[in-house]
Design a protein around this nucleic acid. Sequence first.
DNA 1: GATCCTCGAGTTCT
DNA 2: CTCGAGGATC
Length: 673
Amino acid sequence: MAAAKAPLARVQALRAELERHNYLYYVLDQPLASDAEYDRLLRELQQLESDHPELASPDSPTQRVGATPLPQFEPFAHRTPMLSLSNAFSEEEVSAFDRRVREGVELDTIEYLAEPKFDGLAISLVYEQGRFTRGATRGDGYTGEDVTPNLRTVKSIPLRLRGKAPPQLLEVRGEVLMYRRDFDALNARQRANEEKEFVNPRNAAAGSLRQLDSRITASRALRFYVYAAGAIEGAAAPATHSALEDWLQQLGLPVCPERKVVRGLQGLLDYYRQLGERRAALAYQIDGVVYKVNSVAAQQRLGFVARAPRFAIAHKFPAEEANTEVLAIEVQVGRTGALTPVARLAPVFVGGVTVTNATLHNEDELRRKDVRIGDTVVVRRAGDVIPEVVTVLKDLRPRNAAEFSMPATCPVCGSAVLRLPDEAVARCSGGLICPAQRKQALLHFASRRAMDIEGLGEKLVDQLVDNDIVKTAADLYRMGFVALAGLERMAQKSAQNVLDAIERSKSTTLARFIYALGIRNVGEATAKELARYFGSLDRLMQADAEMLQLVPDIGPVVALSIAQFCAEAHNREVIEQMRACGVHWQEGPPGAAANAARLAGKVFVLTGTLPGMSREQAKELIEAQGGKVAGSVSGKTDYVVAGAEAGSKLAKAEQLGVTVLDEAGLLQLLEGL
DNA sequence: GATCCTCGAGTTCT
DNA sequence: CTCGAGGATC
C-alpha cells in the first residue's frame, strides 16, 4: 500500500481530495463524489493520522468532528467592528435610501449588489497565512465569543484557503445557518430521543453554535455563507463588493449564489420582488434582502452613521401571516378597570413563535374587524413581536357564529360596566372592590419602575388577594412571614426572599412612590415632573386642581385625576400606613431645578441595544444630567442614541437630520467633551 | 380649532 | 409596539 511507504504524501493527497470535495459541494454546489466515497476517504485519513500522530494537523478535515468541551467561551475582540444594518420596511424607505446614496456620491444611477438577508447568526472568521485560525460570534459588534472549535466542525467553512498565495490576514463576515430540511431532520431526531425540539432553524443554528461541547455542534448540519470582509492584509482589496465576493469564492469560501448586481431603484425593487416570490422555495430562511452600493470608493465616500453603514440597507419582507381559529373571546380587566377583549386562538406558529392569544384592543376594534368565536382569522406579529388579528376570513365562518358583545357587568366582580360617550374603552366601575383591579394595582405598585419588589409576581399576588391577606399596598408592609409561608409554592426560603425584597423597597424615591400609587393618567414621566415640582408628598397632596395645572405638561384632565386621588380618604390612609411602616424617600425644596445640569432641556431617544449598558442605565445617566429621554423621534429630538439592531427610529432620525450618537458618543457627551 | 408631540396604558412570549 | 388621548402650540 502506498501509505506504508509515504504516509505524508498520502495524507496530503487525502486532505487535498477531501477539501476539493467540500469545495465542490458547498461552494460550487456540484457534488462529485457520493457520500459513501467521501466517508471512505475520511476514514482512511483518520486511520493514517492515528497511526502517525506526527502528521496530525488542526486544519485536517478529520478535525471537523469536534474537540473536548470548553469550560466557557472566551471573549473575542473583532479587528474591525461588525456593524448592523439599517432596515427598510417599504418601497418608500428604499427609495429614500437610493436618493440619499445618489446625493451622497453625486451620480444619477447607482450600481448595487443585492443578496438575501439570511435568518441565521452573523459570525467573523480569521484566516492567517490562509489557515482558519479563529472565529467568533458577532456579540455586540465589537466583542463576540470565540467559538473556533465549533466553527471548525462546519463543513462549508474551509480550514485552508485555496490558491498559492492567500493573503497574510483575512477577516471575513458571514452567516451560519441551518437548511430547513436539516432543521426538520434534527427535530425528528430530537423528538425520537425525547429531547426538546427547536422552534425554528435560526434558534437551532444558534443553539448548535453555542455548544461548549463542539462534538454536539459537529452532529448538527450547519452551513455558512460569506458576504463581507473585515481586515485584509497582504492582498489588494477588490474595487467593488461583487468582485470581493467573487474573490472570496475563489479562495474557497461559500458565497450565496442568489447575489446579483442591479442598477438603480427599479433594479432593487425588481430583485426584492423576484426573490420574494422564490422565498419559500429556498433551502434556508431569509427575512429580507440586503442592498449594498457596489463601488468600494463610493462606500467610503458615504461612510457611516452611528453603527450602521450609509451605503447598505436591509429591505425586510412583510411580517409572516398565518391562519388559525378563534376558540374563545375572553375579557380581561386592567388596572384602571379597562375591559380588554382577548382572542384565545388555536396555537399557530407564526414569525418564529407559537401564538395562542391576540388582543382585540376594545369594542370598536372588535366591531370593525367583526371577530366571532369559531371564526378563522389571519394572524401576524405586528412589528414582529405582538400578535394581532389582521382580518377575518368570513367565507369560513360557521353559520351560527354570534356577534360578540361586551358584557354589561364586570366578569370578575360583577359591577356595572360603563363606557363614557367619547371614550373607546369600557370600564368596570367597581374600583378597588374589584379583585382584578386590586391585583393589577398591586402588580403595578411592585413593578420594576415603581417600588421594584422582586418576586412579587402574578401568581403570588393572585393568592394574596384571593386569600384576603392583602387588600391594599400598605398590607404588603404589614403582612407576616407566617401568612406568606403558608401559600402554595412558597417555601420558607422564597417567603423570606419576598419579605426581604419588600423591606428593601421601603427606601425609595418620591418619583417612584408617586408613580407606584397608580393615579390615573399619571405615568412615569408625570410622576417625575410632580416630584421635581413639589419636592415633598405633603405639598403635592395639598395642591388643588388649579395649582396642579401650573406643573409643566399637566392640564385639566390630569390635574383632576390627581386632585381626586388625593382627596379620597381611603388613599390618604393607605399612604399614611405605608409611611408608618417605614416607607421613606428624600424630600427636597419645591421646584428643585435641573437647569444647572449640562444636558438641561435636551431630548434624547434611545434605540437598539447598546454594547456596554442597558437602556435603563443610559436613561439614568442622561436624566442625572438633566436630559430627557423620550419614546419617539420628532423635530424636537436633539439626539438619537443608536445601538445594535436599531430600527425605524434610526431611519426617522436620519430623515429629520437629528444627530445620531453611538454609545461612545453618548459617553463623550455626558463627560462634556 | 387644528395639528403635532408626548405620555399612558395595555399586551405577547421566551 | 401601538393606539388613544391629553397637553402645548400656532
